[in-house]
Write a protein that binds this DNA or RNA. Sequence first.
DNA 1: GCAAAAACACTAATATCATTAGTATTTTAT
DNA 2: ATAAAATACTAATGATATTAGTGTTTTTGC
Lengths: 186, 186
Amino acid sequence: MRVTKADVIQTASDMADKNGLSNVSLKAVAESLHIRTPSLYNHIDSLESLLREVAHKGMKAMNERMVQAAIGKIGDTAIKGVGIEYLSYMIEHPGIYETIQWATWHGTEQTGEIFRNYLSLLKTLILSCDFKQTDIDEILNLLTGVLHGYTTLQLRYAFHKPEEVKAALADALDTVLLGLHQKYDQ
Amino acid sequence: MRVTKADVIQTASDMADKNGLSNVSLKAVAESLHIRTPSLYNHIDSLESLLREVAHKGMKAMNERMVQAAIGKIGDTAIKGVGIEYLSYMIEHPGIYETIQWATWHGTEQTGEIFRNYLSLLKTLILSCDFKQTDIDEILNLLTGVLHGYTTLQLRYAFHKPEEVKAALADALDTVLLGLHQKYDQ
DNA sequence: GCAAAAACACTAATATCATTAGTATTTTAT
DNA sequence: ATAAAATACTAATGATATTAGTGTTTTTGC
């Protein structure tokens, strides 16, 4: 019956997805858990640290889903699959994604480490396209940029027409990969 | 000697650039202007509305700079010029850019209108590349996505090595334009 | 110039949160 | 079974946004 740290993080995550990051407060989280606000401090250090934990849990879940999406695929197909999964997660968890963005500015070393796991997955997939090792970072920067920017800007439409936006992202990634191959293929 | 609305917005903008959006408060703005916090309400409606005005002013300034950067250029050159200007503005005004991002979620109709001005400029430039009218929106979505995502993710490096990151953005845009031409050229 | 109106600043008060301190109770571990 | 740890509580503090009400300066209309 007693509240656990995982409960607190889960409640904050749900609240972010439902009402937006700006409406996540310790007061609201505590009420949702039927405890008093100060009791939350038995589980967390501060509101900021809670939000960081929401972000970290979300980033890990997102990474895990992208890894799953990549299984059995290589090259362009794998990159597109991972990109679609990235967008899908954001559609399902817009508040967590908002928190992840917040954490890129207010993050700790751990935030960076989890982010590097994501980069590592993409790097492996880029290599599976037979791009040269020396071009990896340029390609990585472009791909991560497109994924972050495209999905963020299309998110408001993605709620209403998720399949259309996912298809559009696949097309956009096709275009980018076309350019990448033309520029970097050996 | 008396404070004007423009002063308030300017002070909040400077504060965002210097200390980050999360450190902008009415208390801090008032202190910086040597007036009491409630006096700010003679100029603004609320903290939220002040942040929106900071964002709107920043978006307009950014649009204006991009228009200037586009003058005398067409096609790929114009798009790259505008993109570099976009990044340059963000490097110079990271706090305002943060506020602009905030406003995309907490914006009003006016926010959308200013954003559409930016889209309109890009559309014109895309047409100057001789792309077909029917492909404009797909191309626009990709370009805006790359600009937002790439610049956001590279911003932390851009502070230390602005010229390198600008050159890297130009290369990334080259790659994207290569793909766009291969896919959409008539 | 002068009276009325508007703009602008102030103090005082209220509301909302986050956070800390200190304490009691329940669960866990030895 | 008892000591320790975890978890909950109440009460208090501090920071900030916001409102109400008031006085003063500046601007406007004549």
